[in-house]
Amino acid sequence: MSVAKEKQYQKEFAPHLKLIDGLAELLNTYHKQGIKMAIGSAAIMFNIDFVLDGLQIRHYFDAIVSADDVVRSKPDPETYLKCATLLSIAPAECLVFEDAPKGVDAALNANMDCVVLTTMHNKDEFNQRNIISFHKDFTDFAM
């Protein structure tokens, strides 16, 4: 039943699937600069595949860590620490883009700085000390 539910969700959501404003430019810029990028998500891989393939952005990412790959979910740092390991980058050298307080907590617990996208939550819902900036989308992110 769970797989059937996810398939129905994907079918209904597919026409609305789009990148957050400015994300295509950011991904392209970072990719050209050789910056390693990973996805660290609490979603299952089935749904991550739907988004990456539907938006044709899989090639930008050097590593993907899903809910299927961890024992403990966010705010535990396991997801982000696995990303850092797969990228061969020290956690303190990573920058996390997050849209949820638990994700920002996970970044803090992994010793990573965070840029917060206020797409799902308001700025006042975040009080973590690892936040370096807030943005409504990627168009106002200084690259």
Rank of each mutant, 00 (worst) to 15 (best):
E93L: 05
E93D: 13
N109T: 05
I57H: 02
E25H: 02
I48G: 02
K74F: 02
G22S: 02
A38N: 04
T118K: 10
A42T: 15
S73A: 12
Y60C: 09
C83R: 00
R72T: 08
T29K: 10
L23Y: 00
Q10W: 02
Q33F: 03
G54I: 03
I64Q: 04
S88H: 07
F141M: 10
D49H: 15
C94Q: 03
M1T: 07
F97A: 12
D113Y: 04
N28W: 00
K102R: 10
K32T: 08
L95R: 10
M45F: 13
D21A: 13
D76G: 05
D62V: 05
F50L: 15
Q33G: 02
P77A: 06
V116M: 00
I57A: 08
A63P: 01
A38I: 05
N109A: 12
A84K: 01
I44G: 08
P15C: 03
P15R: 06
D76V: 05
L87G: 01
I57W: 06
S133W: 14
S73F: 12
L52S: 13
G22M: 06
F134A: 02
K7I: 09
L19P: 02
T119E: 06
T139D: 06
K18G: 11
M37P: 03
F13P: 09
T79N: 00
D69M: 08
Q128L: 01
A106V: 01
T118V: 13
I39E: 05
D69R: 06
Q56M: 13
V71T: 15
D21G: 06
L117C: 13
P77C: 09
E78R: 01
K7C: 14
N127Y: 09
D62E: 14
D62C: 10
I39H: 09
R58C: 01
I20W: 01
L52C: 15
A63T: 04
G54Y: 01
K136D: 12
I89R: 03
Y80Q: 02
P77H: 03
